[in-house]
Amino acid sequence: MEERLYDLIFICRPATPEEEISKIVTTLEHSAVEHGGKVEKTEKWGTRRLAYRVSKHREGFFVYMVLRSAQSDIIKELERRLKVSDAVIKYQTVRLDEDLKRQQKLVKHRERRAGRRPRKAAGAPTPAQQVPPTAEQTAAS
């Protein structure tokens, strides 16, 4: 089975000490590896305001992880762990590989079209092609 990409976000209580959050993250990473997955990225977003109250909290500590795995059991296991731990008030896993695949397809399609178009009309498509990279460059710089 092909590998799948998942986004995992969980929210801890704002009062949780930093060490405990790190402990949760390490246990999650360990169990992910045990189940044949791979943790690509772990980000601590820090304490953020919640858009609505979650178990009587208005703020929460957000942790964001990106996982790659061929088995779906890994998600089951990680969600079980998150459910069990008291510090975690909310979690969400989203499968992203299909969206990304769609994105790549669109990019490829556009490139092909951009490559084909200049034969018919050379002037029109070139400025349109130049726009997106400049926007990305400005955002990156």
Binding site: I11, A51, Y52, R53, V54, K90, Y91
Partner: peptide, 9 residues
């Protein structure tokens, strides 16, 4: 995941 509200209270 509480990044956006369902409805503001």
């Amino acid at each position: 995941i509480a990044l956006l509200p369902f409805a503001t209270e």
